[in-house]
Amino acid sequence: MTALIQAALDAVYLGSLFALYALGVAMIFGIMRLINFAHASLITVGAYAMAVTANLPLVLRILVTVAVCVLLALLLEFVAFRGLRGADPATLLVTSFAVSVLLTALCEATFGSLPKASPLDDWFQLSWVFGSVYVPTLNGVTIIVTALLLIGLSLFLAKTRWGTHMRAAAEDFTTARMLGVRANRVIMLAFAISGVLAAVAAILLVGTTGTVTPIFGLAPVLYGLIAAVVGGLSSLRGAVLGGFALGITSQLLQSFLPGDLRPFRDAFLFAAVFLLLVVRPQGLISPKQGERI
């Protein structure tokens, strides 16, 4: 029983992280039909922001990191993607690759290719102990922060004026504009939110790795993209669901695969993804059936 609870908590932790990654990708895709690979760079730069500010108090580090990621996201929108509105999705994807490669090179030129220390406070290395169940503080914090972000974002989208604008733009961008929704504002808002999500992902992730390299954000965004596709790329709910599905499956395989098969965990995981997409190419949630957001 204890082992089961332990495994479940670990699974929810990984699911939370994947959901954060997936949401950052889906946020932009929903509005712009852009698969924003440069989200990886946002996470990397966020982690470097944590490294550069390592001597400051945690609250300040978090604020700086969030600010850096949001500003960079807005800058990317303005410089790289604004001129490409309505362009072919392939063009957008290639542009986001180019942006990502450029920023990776910039990080390498600035900070070198060796890992740079980006530690979180010691407090995060402690564990919360409930009987015989151990929850590392970082895992607990990740689960709680993700839950709060998801609740906050849903409330924002459901209850506020701007949230309604975003939902409208995600469903039918042209109609939303004709009704007076300003295209620039909605897209900038989506990028800003993806910046916040990248910053939070970076902060939580440096908690486990402790170091940053120029390709820090790459794997998270790959997993996020896969999770978003599993969930249904144009639905935010789908992205969150996909994130949790992928994270939980991965962790359960890790916990319950026989020892000699464990190194092949990801092979099993992606075989499952492959099978799912053969059966349900549109992902778990498709916009036709439900809402887009």
Binding site: A168, M178, G180
Partner: peptide, 30 residues
């Protein structure tokens, strides 16, 4: 388009283009 509507011209497009994931009231307020 978002500026033209502010000038006082509203278009009802062919095919209606209702936002189906929004409520009737949300569509109207939009």
């Amino acid at each position: 388009p978002e500026d033209v509507v502010r000038r006082g011209i509203a278009l009802v497009r062919e095919g209606r283009h209702i936002l189906t994931s929004l409520t009737v009231e949300e569509n109207l307020l939009l």
